[in-house]
Structure formats: structure tokens, C-alpha cells
Nucleic acid binder design. Structure first.
Lengths: 340, 340
DNA sequence: AAAAGTCACGAAATCGGTTTCGTGTTAACA
DNA sequence: TGTTAACACGAAACCGATTTCGTGACTTTT
């Protein structure tokens, strides 16, 4: 890279001190109009821009927010990023995005790198592996250091910090209830292993809705997907039961379910209703289009970043973690038209 | 945030100088084993971590790569990010992701912020608005400052820097050729306005394939989508012609086309074949699944970051911009089963 | 004419590290 | 015993800004 022009260069070249240059560039009244003109013209001509690093070091703030996501090729998470970015920008912050790829080790490392002064605060959704391990020391350390932290979507109680989540229990309930109201009786649940908090919560909602309708939950109708194996094969098993409804905790599971139903010759939504989670493109463009729980990822991201920035900018105050619950709602589409 | 422990703190507390602490922590031979032990133990106990900003300022490098994308809620771009991130990580870099949201103004601002020392280099895909304006001064300025820059996917000749692109002409040709080989004669092209470079190039490929088959390109079969208006409505018009094939330059256009075809009662792929671009989830999960040109976004991202880092790390050398062309290939699916 | 005030600018500290170049003490060597 | 080398450490410069506190030269006031 070309040698950048600094205040020192300008000072030397114009035979003044660096303080004079600095003040002149901020149009300080301490400096004579003449000198200011000269300095500003010079700076302008050589396209002087103050070095960010120097400013950040001096001001002890970076105006950067670190974001760590489990993955990005995923409609929900990319929507959240948009929200974070918009919120951050409005307050003059930039975001630094990293990925844990669902790996505990990478999460720890990334957290370490980012928390060394590079960012003013962090927004994180916890990696699957970490949730399984239940090892949250890297997070609690962060909290102990009083680095502003906001968790979203995948959160745990062990970490004392601000959180933004969707009402997963409520959403699971709504989805299941909707199927029941359509007259469905044997509703399969395609979910994640229980250590993924959101999966467990959505399951609670599912069970609650069933109980209310005096239906016993049947373990044979519940599939916990292991993402390291063939997803479709795992879902196919539950189709051996005489199911008439499917509640999938994400788009991919829903799309797979639909495909299987079609292959089995089941007509949707006449013979079987399907409902998904995360209102992404697949749900919108598949045919029939899939009824889903809209998670409002954008809102989550924006809320998360707003809470974080508040925390960053007035941190003298006493810490009492907030938990923001975003209510999700049902987006009705073709896959669950009321059965007659 | 809590006051972080610094070298100065340690030095004062242990009654040594900061230089001694610094050296001790790097296990320098200049320091006696005894002193080193003492210092290291203290640092360890208080969980000392060097301040990144200070290091970056001193070393004149940040080990951060700036990435500016037009949008993120898009399978192709999020795949590219994954590639960039993986490549960056392998070389010890982090990435700072920003979005232009297709806006010229935001692109200029973001570029300015990032190029002030916050990053060692930049990877950018140009915003639509900028392509339309044809105002690339913010980029050429960057090049003049010799800040390492790599453009990908949406690139322009006016900017002298490294580039990574897919063989768009070839891809458009392949796609069209495939339809022709399936016996299709009236092939619609659903593309972007011509100022989007990739759209124009894919169109070239389309036209080339048609010419080779002695088919005159028919302007009535070509739709340039204005994203500010209803996409489906715009595509519907071309369906008034008796088309038997559709080549869409992205997934969304392809999915919309398929939906329209279905609504018109056309069976796919018997009566009409559809082929898309970008191998995303919609294409995979729609039914019938959609044949697409796989863009290899991950590879693009990884290549881009590798070129960039090379540029960053040995920049003494003379500048001769590289252009890397990633070949794309056809992913055959149900929407273009050979017509009998 | 002496005291006070204003103006325009510079020296130096600071942010948190690294690194070069001493320097005082002790040990080894001639 | 005088010279030299090794050892263990500190002072200070540096990265690129900002900011406080002087200070010398004039100007104004009494």
C-alpha cells in the first residue's frame, strides 16, 4: 500500500506543529483563518483522511459491533444480519461478521479475537456444538469483563446478558393449533435434537397444543433430525405412520416433508397439511407454497443491535439483563388450506 | 466496560518497566527466567490480552478484510461470504462485512469508512445503482491509493484491479444450448436491465447459442426485469407468446416463471422447460426441481480472498491485475428433462 | 508605562503496545 | 588487575491521532 498522508506529514511540509494541523482541520478558533485555509487546502489536495485505528485507540471505542453467527447460508440468519446492519448504521456503527460454523472451537477463538478491543460489543447466536457441550465459559468470561453482549435466537439462561428471542413456545403452539383446527389428528413433529434450545421450546408448544386437544403425544410421530445424516431419510420414517399433518421447525425440514408427501402420492393440503418455520424463499416459492411461522429476523436483528448500542453507550448503569421476546406469527399459504 | 488490564498495569504492579513486561510475555531471552515466570503468572492470573488496536496501529496492518456486498438475503452472496470467510480464516484474517443495499451513496460511504485504515484490503461486488450511474470514482480513487481491491461477480473494466467472475457468457450459452438440445425453439430470456454486467453477458451467451442454431433472437421473448416493480407481472407478459423454454438469470425469476407456467396449465418439463441461475435452495426444493447453472459462489469467494491476501502480503511487486474466471456448470434437474 | 488580556501556536502527554539502543552490574578472561 | 563480554533490565522512540496546558508577542486597559 502507498504511504498514507498523515498529520505529521502535513505539519512538516507546512512548517507547523501537529497540534496546529489537528486543530486547523477541525476548524478550531485557536488557529488563524490564514493558517487554517492553508492547512485545509493542503489536506484537501492530498486527500487526507484521519487514520481510523489511531482514533479508535485514542477514543477507546471502535464503533464496530461484532456479530457471530452459526451459519450464513440460511434465510433466517441473513435476514437477521440485515436488521443488525441497518440498526448499526443508523447509529454510526459498522458490523464485523464472523461465523462459528456451529463449531465450539471456532466460536471460542472468534470470541477471543473480537473481544480484544476490535469491537465495542457483540451479538451472538450460539453454535450447536456449544449448546450440546453446555460449556459457556467463553461467554461468562466475556460478561465478567463487562463487554456488552447480546444473544439472540439460540440463547441459554446460564449466560447473564441481554437476549432477543422469538416466542418459540408460542409459535410452536400456534402452528400446532392451526393444524388441529384444520381437523388434523396425527401431527408429526420434525425437529432438532433437544439441546438446540429453540427446537426444545417449539416442541413444548407442540405438546401443549396437543394436550389441550386431549391428544396424547406419540413419540413415534416425533423426529429429531441429526444434520450429519441424510435428512430426507430420517423424515421418511415418520411417514410410515398414518400422519395427516406435519409441523417442521424449519424450512428445509418442511420442504423435505413436502417432497416425501408428494412422492407418496399424498395430496397437499387435502390429505396432509404441512407447516414450517422461518419465512424464507423456499416456503414462498415451492408449490404448493408452505404455511410458516414468520420469525421476523429483521426485527430481531434490529432490536438486538439497539439494545446492544444502548448498553455500549451508557454503561455506567447497573446491569439488569433484558430479555426481548419477539412475537412470531402465522403466514397462511397453500400447504394448509382448511380441510373441508 | 470494565477497565482492561494493560502492560502498564502489570509493569507498575510488579515494579518493572513496560518493556520488560512486553519482552517477558514474548518469552524473550533478554529477561531472566525468574522475572519471566513472575510476569507471565501475573498476566495469566489477570487474564491479560494485548489490545488489538494498539498492535494494529503499530504494525500498520489489521488482519481484517472488508467485504461490501449489494445484499445478503440471497443464496449466491451468502455462499460467497462463506468462501471468503473460510479463505480469510486460513490465513489468519477476519472479515468485516458491509452492505451497499444496491445504493450508490451507501457504497461510497462504506468504502470511505473502511478504507481509512480499518482494513488491509477490500472485496466488493458493485451495487446496481453504481453500475447504472457508471460513476466509479470511489473505486478508482481506492486503486490510486493502492489499497488492495478485488471485485467479484459484478465487475467493470474501468476499475483496474483483480477480479473474480464466472464465465457468464459461457454459462448463458450452456443454458440456452441445453434448452435447444432438448428441442426447444421459442426460448424466453428473463434477465436484468443491461447495465447489470452479468445480465448483459448472460444475454450474449443466450444470443450466441440461438445464432448457432440459426434462430433469430426475438425481442418479444426477452424481459428485462425492473426489480422495483412486480416481478411476476412482468414475466407474465412473455407467457403470452407461445414459448416452450425459459432461461432465467436467477433463481427468483426462474421460480416465478415456473409458477406462472403452472398457473397456465403448462406441464413442466413436457410442454415447457425452465432453467435458472445460481444453485440455491429454491431450485433444489421446488417441484419440479429446477435445472440451474451452478455459480460456485463458495469457490469465487475463496479465490477472491486468496488473490487479495497475496496482494496484501507482497505488495512491493508491480501491479498487473489478474482476472480469474470460474467456470460454471449445468446442474440437471427435473425442470428440463429431455423432451421425447 | 505597567498590568492584564488576547491571539496563535507549540510541547508534551495520552491511548497500548513493540523495539532499539543504551547502561549498570557481575563474571570471565588475559 | 584491567579489559571485555554477558546478562537483565530500563528509557525512549514510534505508530497517528487529540487535547491540555503553556508561552511569546501584541494589544488593550488603567
Amino acid at each position: 500500500m502507498k504511504q498514507k498522508i498523515t498529520i505529521k506529514t502535513i505539519a512538516k511540509e507546512l512548517g507547523v506543529s501537529t497540534s496546529t494541523v489537528s486543530k486547523a482541520l477541525k476548524d478550531s478558533h485557536e488557529i488563524s483563518t490564514e493558517t487554517k485555509k492553508k492547512i485545509q487546502a493542503y489536506a484537501d489536495f492530498y486527500n487526507y483522511k484521519p487514520n481510523n485505528l489511531a482514533l479508535q485507540l485514542r477514543n477507546q471505542k471502535t464503533k464496530v459491533i461484532g456479530v457471530i453467527l452459526p451459519k450464513i447460508v440460511h434465510h433466517f440468519f441473513s435476514t437477521v444480519i440485515m436488521g443488525i446492519e441497518e440498526g448499526a448504521n443508523e447509529k454510526g456503527y459498522n458490523i464485523m461478521v464472523c461465523f462459528s460454523n456451529e463449531s465450539y472451537k471456532k466460536e471460542v477463538e472468534t470470541l477471543k479475537v473480537l473481544s480484544n478491543g476490535s469491537v465495542d460489543g457483540l451479538i451472538v447466536s450460539i453454535a450447536n456444538e456449544t449448546l450440546k457441550n453446555k460449556d459457556f465459559k467463553h461467554f461468562t468470561d466475556l460478561v465478567a469483563e463487562e463487554i456488552p453482549l447480546v444473544l439472540f435466537d439460540r440463547v441459554v439462561d446460564e449466560i447473564l446478558c441481554d437476549k432477543v428471542v422469538v416466542d418459540d413456545v408460542g409459535a410452536g403452539y400456534k402452528a400446532t393449533r392451526h393444524l388441529l383446527e384444520n381437523g388434523r389428528k396425527k401431527i408429526a413433529l420434525i425437529t432438532t435434537p433437544n439441546h438446540v434450545s429453540v427446537g426444545a421450546l417449539r416442541r413444548q408448544g407442540y405438546e401443549k397444543a396437543l394436550i389441550e386437544s386431549y391428544i396424547k403425544t406419540d413419540e413415534k410421530l416425533i423426529v429429531e433430525i441429526d444434520e450429519n445424516q441424510d435428512i430426507k431419510k430420517q423424515i421418511e420414517k415418520v411417514f410410515e405412520e398414518a400422519i395427516d399433518g406435519v409441523f417442521a421447525v424449519n424450512e428445509i425440514y418442511a420442504a423435505n416433508s413436502m417432497r416425501i408427501a408428494k412422492e407418496k402420492g399424498l395430496s397437499i393440503p387435502e390429505e396432509i397439511s404441512i407447516i414450517g418455520f422461518t419465512d424464507g424463499l423456499i416456503s414462498e416459492y415451492s408449490s404448493p407454497s408452505i404455511t410458516t411461522i414468520a420469525q421476523h429476523g429483521f426485527t430481531m436483528g434490529k432490536q438486538a443491535v439497539e439494545v446492544l448500542i444502548e448498553r455500549i453507550e451508557k454503561d455506567a448503569e447497573i446491569y439488569s439483563p433484558k430479555k426481548i421476546v419477539i412475537s412470531s406469527d402465522l403466514k397462511l399459504r397453500e400447504s394448509t388450506k382448511p380441510s373441508s
